[in-house]
C-alpha cells in the first residue's frame, strides 16, 4: 500500500513533502508524487495536509 493523493483536492502546497519522514514525497512536473518503494504508510502526511487530499487506505483521519 501507499498513500493516495486526491488530485482534485491537492493544491500542491508541498507541505506533505516537508513532513514526510522518509522522503517518499516530492514535487515533480508541477504535481506531488509519491515513491511507493519509500512510503511506509505512516500517515503523517495525511495528518498534515490542510486539504485532506492525502489518505492511507485503512487509516482514516478524524476531523
Amino acid at each position: 500500500m501507499t498513500v493516495k493523493i486526491d488530485r482534485e483536492l491537492c493544491i500542491r502546497c508541498t507541505g506533505c513533502v516537508a513532513v514526510c519522514p522518509v522522503g517518499a514525497l516530492d514535487y515533480q512536473g508541477n504535481r506531488i508524487v509519491v515513491d511507493p518503494k519509500k512510503c511506509t504508510d505512516c500517515n503523517i502526511c495525511a495528518k498534515f495536509c490542510p486539504m485532506h487530499a492525502l489518505s492511507v487506505p485503512g487509516k482514516p483521519i478524524k476531523d
Binding site: T14, G15, V17, A18, V19, P21, G23, Y27, K47, P50
Partner: peptide
C-alpha cells in the same frame, strides 16, 4: 523551502516533527 530535500541529501536532519510545523 519548507519541503527541502537538499538538506537531507547533504546529511542534515531537516524533516519536520508534526509538533513543530503548522498546517
Amino acid at each position: 523551502g519548507v519541503e527541502s530535500l537538499t538538506a537531507r541529501w547533504a546529511g542534515l536532519n531537516s524533516s519536520h516533527k508534526l509538533t513543530d510545523i503548522c498546517s
